Simulated scan of single mutants.
Amino acid sequence: MAERRGPLYLARASYRRRRLIDALRLLPFLMFGLWLLPLLWGGEGTDRPVGAGARAFLHVFVVWALGIAAAALLTRRLARAETAPERAAPMQDGQGDESRDEEAEG
């Protein structure tokens, strides 16, 4: 018969790190979509060309700046998430195992 396996649980730190990596991968597509948003302004029914005006130029540069800030924030959080297991490494000598078991039960 097939061996019965228990449920697969991922550690929180690795799960969060993977989700941060996913967010960093999706960020360029989100920023590109927001960057193209001014193309919806103006056009049909108005006397202005599609995406024209100072508002559209301001929008493009604000989205660009927000994209850089979001990438920096996500990269910083990812770097912090990768160094977190190294900080927890000294507790592997047996100290604190009981407290982790109690937290898992309660």
Rank of each mutant, 00 (worst) to 15 (best):
D47Q: 09
A70C: 10
A2G: 05
L36K: 02
L40P: 04
A88H: 01
L58N: 05
T75L: 14
L58D: 03
L39A: 14
G67N: 09
G33N: 13
S99K: 08
M91E: 01
R12M: 01
L74P: 08
A56E: 12
G33P: 06
L26R: 13
S99F: 02
E82D: 04
G94S: 05
H59S: 13
H59C: 06
R80N: 08
D22H: 04
D47Y: 01
R76L: 07
P7A: 14
P49D: 08
A88I: 05
F32K: 07
E3L: 11
W64L: 15
A84M: 10
L8D: 13
E86M: 04
A81E: 15
E44M: 11
A84T: 15
R16F: 01
A11Y: 00
D22Q: 12
P85V: 03
A11R: 04
L78V: 04
L36D: 03
E105H: 04
G33Y: 02
P38N: 02
R77Y: 03
E3P: 04
I21M: 06
A13E: 13
D97E: 13
M1T: 13
L20A: 09
H59T: 14
R55P: 06
V50T: 15
R80L: 11
L40Y: 04
W41G: 12
L34R: 05
A11G: 02
W64R: 09
R16Q: 05
R100F: 03
H59D: 09
G42E: 09
A23N: 04
G94I: 07
L10D: 01
L66N: 01
Y15W: 06
M31I: 15
R25Y: 07
M91L: 03
E103V: 12
P28F: 00
A104G: 03
A69P: 03
R4W: 05
F61S: 08
L36I: 12
L58I: 12
T75P: 00
L39S: 11
G6A: 15
A104N: 04
L24T: 08
W64Y: 10
R87T: 14
R18K: 03
A2Y: 02
L39H: 09
G51Q: 11
L27T: 06
T46Q: 08
R80C: 03
R100P: 01
R48N: 07
I21V: 14
A69S: 08
L37S: 04
M31N: 06
